[in-house]
Amino acid sequence: TRVETATETAWISLVTALHLVLGLSAVLGLLLLRWQFPAHYRRLRHALW
């Protein structure tokens, strides 16, 4: 049971790290898009909202 718990903890930390990385890359990508294509971003936002 001790090994299982350790594996579970490792998986949880791995998944958390993955989610953090994905979230950060998504935010960075959005910022980059907004910085590179302001007109396109505004049009996209206008279409979405």
Score class of each variant (00 low, 15 high):
27 V>M: 10
10 A>N: 01
41 Y>P: 07
47 A>W: 10
6 A>W: 04
29 G>L: 14
39 A>T: 13
11 W>L: 03
12 I>Q: 08
18 L>R: 03
11 W>G: 02
22 L>F: 02
3 V>Y: 02
7 T>Q: 13
9 T>K: 11
37 F>Q: 04
10 A>Q: 08
26 A>K: 04
29 G>A: 14
7 T>Y: 13
14 L>V: 10
45 R>M: 10
25 S>E: 04
38 P>Y: 14
21 V>H: 00
45 R>W: 04
21 V>A: 15
13 S>D: 02
20 L>I: 12
42 R>F: 11
36 Q>P: 07
12 I>W: 00
37 F>Y: 15
7 T>M: 15
19 H>P: 03
16 T>K: 02
39 A>H: 12
24 L>S: 00
37 F>E: 03
11 W>N: 02
48 L>P: 01
43 R>K: 10
38 P>W: 07
41 Y>E: 09
48 L>C: 12
2 R>P: 12
37 F>P: 00
37 F>M: 07
43 R>Y: 07
4 E>R: 13
23 G>L: 14
28 L>R: 04
10 A>T: 09
6 A>N: 06
24 L>D: 02
17 A>T: 08
6 A>T: 10
16 T>M: 08
21 V>G: 08
17 A>Y: 04
16 T>E: 01
36 Q>T: 15
5 T>D: 05
10 A>D: 05
23 G>I: 13
41 Y>H: 09
9 T>Y: 08
29 G>M: 14
13 S>A: 15
29 G>T: 15
27 V>P: 04
2 R>T: 12
18 L>F: 14
3 V>M: 04
32 L>P: 10
18 L>T: 06
40 H>M: 14
35 W>E: 15
41 Y>T: 13
21 V>S: 14
30 L>S: 08
19 H>G: 03
31 L>M: 14
17 A>P: 05
24 L>M: 13
22 L>N: 00
35 W>F: 15
42 R>Y: 10
44 L>R: 06
41 Y>A: 15
25 S>C: 15
38 P>A: 15
15 V>F: 01
29 G>S: 13
39 A>R: 14
23 G>C: 14
35 W>A: 15
30 L>D: 02
6 A>S: 14
5 T>C: 00
8 E>L: 05
48 L>W: 07
37 F>L: 10
34 R>N: 06
22 L>E: 01
35 W>M: 15
6 A>Q: 11
30 L>R: 03
21 V>Y: 03
1 T>W: 10
26 A>T: 11
17 A>C: 10
1 T>I: 13
23 G>M: 14
44 L>K: 01
5 T>A: 00
14 L>Q: 02
23 G>W: 07
41 Y>R: 05
12 I>M: 08
18 L>A: 02
14 L>N: 02
15 V>D: 04
17 A>W: 05
37 F>I: 07
42 R>Q: 15
16 T>Q: 00
13 S>E: 03
14 L>A: 02
21 V>T: 14
32 L>T: 10
22 L>R: 01
40 H>W: 08
43 R>N: 09
2 R>A: 11
24 L>E: 05
5 T>S: 00
29 G>N: 03
4 E>Q: 13
42 R>P: 00
31 L>R: 06
46 H>S: 11
7 T>S: 14
24 L>C: 08
44 L>G: 03
49 W>K: 12
13 S>R: 09
3 V>R: 01
49 W>R: 02
30 L>T: 08
23 G>T: 13
49 W>N: 15
18 L>I: 04
35 W>T: 15
32 L>K: 00
38 P>D: 15
40 H>C: 11
2 R>N: 10
22 L>I: 12
4 E>D: 10
4 E>S: 13
44 L>A: 13
25 S>H: 07
26 A>Q: 00
39 A>F: 09
34 R>C: 06
24 L>V: 11
34 R>K: 15
49 W>I: 09
47 A>T: 09
27 V>E: 02
31 L>V: 10
46 H>N: 11
34 R>V: 03
21 V>M: 12
33 L>G: 05
46 H>K: 05
22 L>Y: 00
2 R>K: 12
49 W>Y: 14
39 A>M: 12
13 S>N: 08
39 A>Q: 15
48 L>D: 11
47 A>F: 11
31 L>H: 07
45 R>G: 02
11 W>S: 02
25 S>N: 14
42 R>V: 11
19 H>Q: 03
8 E>K: 04
7 T>C: 03
25 S>L: 07
40 H>D: 00
46 H>F: 07
28 L>K: 06
15 V>R: 04
26 A>C: 12
46 H>C: 14
22 L>H: 03
9 T>N: 09
35 W>Y: 15
16 T>V: 12
1 T>Q: 13
47 A>L: 08
19 H>N: 05
44 L>S: 04
3 V>C: 01
12 I>A: 08
2 R>Y: 13
4 E>T: 13
10 A>S: 10
13 S>I: 14
12 I>R: 09
34 R>M: 02
4 E>G: 08
34 R>D: 01
24 L>N: 01
5 T>H: 01
5 T>L: 01
46 H>R: 08
38 P>S: 12
8 E>I: 01
41 Y>V: 14
15 V>W: 01
46 H>I: 03
38 P>F: 08
21 V>Q: 01
35 W>K: 15
23 G>H: 00
23 G>F: 13
32 L>D: 04
11 W>K: 04
33 L>I: 09
32 L>F: 02
8 E>R: 05
19 H>L: 03
6 A>I: 06
34 R>S: 07
1 T>E: 11
13 S>H: 09
42 R>K: 12
47 A>P: 06
27 V>L: 11
49 W>A: 15
1 T>C: 11
35 W>V: 15
25 S>W: 01
21 V>K: 03
33 L>Y: 02
16 T>F: 08
18 L>H: 00
24 L>T: 02
28 L>V: 00
26 A>D: 02
16 T>S: 09
46 H>P: 03
42 R>H: 10
16 T>R: 05
42 R>C: 07
29 G>V: 14
16 T>Y: 03
44 L>M: 10
20 L>A: 11
34 R>G: 06
34 R>E: 04
2 R>L: 12
47 A>E: 01
28 L>H: 00
39 A>P: 10
33 L>E: 06
4 E>W: 12
48 L>M: 11
1 T>A: 12
3 V>E: 00
30 L>I: 11
45 R>S: 07
2 R>M: 14
26 A>Y: 03
40 H>G: 13
5 T>Q: 00
40 H>F: 08
16 T>C: 09
12 I>G: 02
9 T>H: 09
30 L>A: 12
6 A>V: 04
35 W>H: 15
20 L>E: 04
31 L>D: 03
14 L>C: 03
29 G>F: 13
8 E>M: 06
46 H>Q: 08
25 S>Q: 09
20 L>K: 05
15 V>M: 08
34 R>W: 05
7 T>E: 04
2 R>F: 13
31 L>Y: 12
12 I>D: 01
44 L>C: 09
5 T>R: 03
3 V>P: 01
27 V>D: 05
